[in-house]
Computed example of a mutant assay.
Amino acid sequence: MLRKLHHLFSAPITRVSERNSLLPSTKVDNGERANGTDFGLRNPLEIETFLRDLATRQDFLAVDYGNGQIVTRVLQIDTKSNTFIFDYGAFRTGNRAVLAANKLRFEASPDGVKVEFTTGRPREISRDGAVAFEVELPQVLFRVQRREYFRNSHDRSVFLQRDAARGKALSS
């Protein structure tokens, strides 16, 4: 038990700024993270389920088209055609730029967990009398949990004494 406690409190706590991340955002062409650490979902069923959850919760996504971005929501997942539909943005110029882009980068933060994925060029479709975008499902969807604080070394005797005192109080 003491070895487990020692392990928990032996790593350093370091403040990380919002701009610094555990994983670089640079990706290699095959979709892997540049540093070799990979938190990617590749199973199409998992990707569909995750996107369907975003649609159900009506979470917002930022879609970067190269020279700017729009804010949108996932509207529908079509498992038969291996596509998903997302809503038009608020501004006509941004929507036109999305249609012209060869590659789109999506980003969301459901429950504080950053999600990133890329797709190819979307198509404009009509859905329920409104205009929307349709695009192929991503091949990889990255979920990145970022912490603001990391463990730091402490005077372990303080924690051991505290835990020992708690144990005595619980057993009494």
Rank of each mutant, 00 (worst) to 15 (best):
L2G: 05
L2C: 00
L2F: 05
L2K: 10
R3S: 07
K4G: 10
L5I: 13
H6G: 11
H6Q: 13
H7Y: 08
P12R: 07
I13S: 11
I13A: 09
T14H: 13
V16P: 00
V16N: 02
E18W: 03
S21R: 13
S21G: 13
L22N: 04
L22W: 09
L22M: 11
L22Y: 07
P24E: 09
S25L: 12
K27C: 01
V28W: 00
N30D: 15
N30S: 05
E32T: 05
G36Q: 07
D38W: 02
F39I: 08
F39L: 12
F39C: 09
F39D: 09
F39R: 00
R42M: 07
P44Q: 12
P44M: 03
E46K: 14
I47Q: 04
E48N: 10
E48F: 05
E48C: 15
F50S: 06
F50I: 01
F50E: 00
L51M: 07
L51D: 09
L51E: 07
R52M: 11
R52H: 04
D53L: 14
L54S: 06
R57C: 05
Q58L: 14
D59L: 15
L61N: 07
L61Q: 15
V63D: 02
V63E: 02
Y65C: 05
G66Q: 13
N67L: 09
G68A: 08
V71R: 13
R73H: 15
V74S: 05
Q76I: 01
Q76H: 06
D78M: 05
D78F: 10
K80L: 11
S81E: 10
S81Y: 01
S81N: 12
N82M: 06
T83E: 11
I85Y: 02
D87L: 06
Y88H: 04
Y88D: 01
Y88C: 03
A90T: 07
F91H: 12
F91P: 00
R92W: 03
R92G: 00
T93A: 14
N95Y: 00
R96N: 13
A97C: 09
A97F: 03
A97H: 12
V98A: 05
V98L: 04
V98N: 11
A101D: 09
N102K: 09
R105S: 13
R105A: 14
F106N: 03
F106D: 02
E107W: 02
P110H: 11
D111P: 04
G112F: 14
V113T: 03
V113N: 05
K114M: 10
K114D: 11
E116M: 06
F117Y: 10
T119N: 03
G120S: 12
G120N: 01
I125T: 03
I125V: 11
G129F: 04
G129W: 00
A130E: 11
F133S: 05
F133D: 13
F133T: 08
E134W: 01
E134I: 03
E136V: 01
E136I: 02
P138G: 00
Q139P: 00
Q139C: 02
L141R: 14
V144H: 04
Q145F: 08
R147E: 14
R147L: 13
E148L: 15
F150G: 10
N152E: 15
S153D: 07
H154E: 09
D155R: 05
R156I: 07
R156N: 03
S157V: 04
L160G: 00
Q161R: 15
R162H: 14
A165V: 06
G167K: 05
A169S: 06
L170I: 04
L170M: 06
S172M: 04
